[in-house]
Amino acid sequence: MYLISKNENTIEKIEEKTFFELGFKEREHLQEWIAKKPDALGEDLLIIQKEFDGFFDTSERLDLLALDKQGNLVVIENKLDDSGKNVTWQALKYAAYCSTLSKNQIKDIFQQYLEKSGSTEQAEDKLIEFFDNIDYEEIALNKGQTQRVILVARNFRKEVTSIVLWLMNYKLRIQCFKVTPFSLNEQLFVTFDQIIPLKDTEEYVISMADKTQDDINSQEETKSRHNIRYEFWRLLLKPINAKTTLFQNISPTKDNWLQAGSGISGVNYRFVVTKTYARAELNIARPDLVENKFIYDELLKHRKEVEELFKGELEWERHE
């Protein structure tokens, strides 16, 4: 980063520093900066608690708890010069803990924060103001699995960024902000840069995560469908084999069709199942088209007696 001098038409380098060099602390400084200016993270956030430890059966504390404009809880975890290797696990635990918080619990947590900060304001009034003055009853907070995570640090370890990118494929809403202090003479500066996902590519990354999740869901649906088909064929083969020997050497399969020979080459009995229908077929598929038509026409002559034996109408399809 450089400082521009318009008068001299020059630039002067602003030196990048570490928080350690400048004597800054995580809770005393970085946490307070964000608590007092949460829009440094690129959006309107309402801080509702600091050092929140209101979890059952644990004394762990999350750094900052916030709400976004959609009513989602946002867990903000701050580190200084090094993200550490366990920050993702830590933040995910907090997000899981927060997933059970009700609207009234969130309001109470916010009220405690206001009182602890020396404010006489009411949490309900502040929430109404933050959500653009809609009625409190209409405000929806922490609905479904919508918890978000924001990680803040000067440097992120590779194992952390790798985990974050992997988690995003599962539609976890997680962001990493690189916070960098600078100095120039007696002046100090700090920048907050969103590095995961990159701000300019955030919509693309989210759409790719949606596609990945769709692919995963599709795989699960296919696996389930295959299991259902296998079980269907297994159950169907029992009564069929009790009446005919044609399918005795046929095994259940994950495919949507099952076939056995009729004793005539190229003429097969086939069962087909889909999401919407199931059918039984006599399929005539000999190499010679003339022979296929001849067999079909001969069978068609006996249509009435075949359907009487079947006790219902059949579909007859003669492919030219």
Rank of each mutant, 00 (worst) to 15 (best):
N9V: 06
E15L: 06
F20V: 09
F24W: 13
K25W: 13
R27W: 00
R27Q: 07
R27P: 05
E28T: 02
L30P: 05
A35F: 05
L41Q: 02
G42K: 05
G42F: 10
E43D: 14
L45G: 01
Q49E: 01
Q49D: 05
Q49C: 08
K50Y: 03
K50I: 00
E51H: 04
D53F: 04
T58Y: 00
R61N: 13
L65Y: 05
D68P: 10
G71H: 02
L73N: 07
E77H: 05
K79P: 02
L80T: 03
D82H: 05
K85I: 12
V87I: 08
Q90G: 12
L92I: 12
Y94V: 06
A96I: 06
Y97F: 14
C98Y: 04
S99K: 08
Q105W: 00
F110A: 07
Q111L: 07
K116T: 01
K116Y: 05
G118W: 03
E121P: 00
E121W: 04
Q122L: 14
A123Q: 06
E124M: 05
A140K: 12
L141A: 11
L141M: 11
N142F: 03
K143H: 14
Q145Y: 09
Q145N: 11
Q145H: 07
R148D: 01
W166A: 12
W166C: 10
L167C: 03
N169R: 10
Y170W: 06
K171L: 08
V179E: 01
S183L: 10
L184N: 11
L184H: 11
F189E: 12
D193K: 00
I196H: 13
P197D: 09
P197F: 03
K199A: 09
T201K: 15
E202V: 08
V205L: 03
V205M: 12
I206E: 02
M208L: 08
A209N: 04
K211L: 12
T212S: 11
Q213K: 10
D215C: 00
D215Q: 03
I216E: 11
I216Q: 08
Q219R: 11
Q219C: 07
T222S: 13
T222D: 14
K223V: 15
R225F: 14
I228Y: 06
E231S: 08
F232M: 05
K238A: 15
P239H: 04
A242Q: 08
P252G: 06
L258I: 05
Q259R: 10
A260T: 05
S262V: 03
I264Y: 04
S265G: 13
F271E: 03
T274E: 06
A278Q: 07
R279D: 07
A280D: 07
A285C: 14
R286S: 13
D288N: 15
D288Y: 09
L289F: 12
V290N: 14
F294E: 12
I295G: 08
I295M: 09
L300I: 09
K301V: 01
K311A: 12
G312Q: 15
E313I: 12
W316N: 14
W316C: 07
E320I: 08
